[in-house]
Design a protein around this nucleic acid. Structure first.
Lengths: 168, 168
DNA sequence: AGGAAATACTTTAAGCTTAAAGTAATTCCA
DNA sequence: TGGAATTACTTTAAGCTTAAAGTATTTCCT
């Protein structure tokens, strides 16, 4: 839509030509999605089988692991790129299960501080180690010397998409 | 885990060394996930706003678009890499809404054939066109001449992961 | 001061997702 | 032939996810 609008073709194009215009981008998207789905499914399966845990819960712990003094609850949706409402029940359960604490701020009664417990940190370290080795296993056949190159490309891709989103 | 088992280090390693061993793979995974999440969120938002539709529904139609004579229902979970139970309510609703038909096979009463309707095909074409141009827009800043290279890398990555999964 | 706007978070409704268990039909094979 | 195993699909329970609406608190501004 925006493409056709922003750079109108000199001559009218038929459906096939238009399709050809964005085939590369569509193919890239499908590959990206396939890779992510494949890896995510396997990671989820292993988290469940080995630790009876879910990835969203792990992701929350991973954020808190980097913040010894805890984090304002509202930071989590931003960092994890999920909605705020999403986190409420996930944090609820992590508190229930003793992995984290949720403390109302004394300065602003709307704000809550979440912080990993000692047990939470221990559990996270254990799971993080497995998580890393699972990834190393799953990606073992991909040439290690090309990892950084691919990471760089994906970084650029992410930047491009962010820029495009800013504009729209 | 498997890495440590399959190629035991000559000398014992401390935690930091172990972590370094798979940091590249972890970073790659996080980039991959970030790119996918970013794009997927935007596509979902646009599907909802423009067409009041969801991506899983679109994915089903995309599969059926390539099969003029329909598809055995059981093929969908395989192609879309989702569970069978997942598709039941999605297909239910696509049938309800008139996008597809679901016909019991006369040869095997366990089997159902799903097939796009004329209206479904029309709706799909319209959405697919937008889908493509959205992707072109979102990826517009990424150098077009490097698309194929990245696609190739992701293809290889996918193959590597598939191989690793086969082994495990 | 005191009302409007903004902020932080929760709740709700709808839909996606999976694993596991369940149902019905078919095939396999002894 | 007739029971066991397999296959195709559905159902269920639990959890993730979002958008939108709701609540409580704070800030901003007149």
């Amino acid at each position: 839509m925006a493409v056709a609008k922003e750079s109108p073709p000199v001559s009218p194009r038929n459906g096939a030509d238009q399709e050809a215009e964005y085939r590369g981008q569509t193919r890239l998207w499908l590959r990206l999605l396939a890779c992510t789905t494949l890896i995510e499914g396997e990671l989820r399966r292993r988290f469940r089988e080995e630790f009876d845990f879910t990835m969203p819960r792990f992701d929350v712990l991973a954020q808190l692991d980097r913040e010894p003094s805890g984090l304002v609850l509202g930071e989590l949706p931003k960092r994890l790129m999920v909605s705020a409402g999403n986190l409420t029940p996930i944090v609820d359960r992590l508190v229930e299960d003793g992995y984290i604490t949720r403390t109302p701020s004394t300065l602003d009664r709307r704000v809550q501080i979440v912080c990993m417990t000692v047990e939470g940190r221990k559990a996270f370290r254990r799971m993080a180690k497995s998580h890393g080795s699972w990834l190393a296993e799953l990606l073992a056949e991909f040439p290690a010397e090309r990892l950084d190159g691919l990471i760089g490309e994906l970084d650029e891709l992410k930047g491009s998409v962010r820029d495009a989103l800013q504009k729209s």
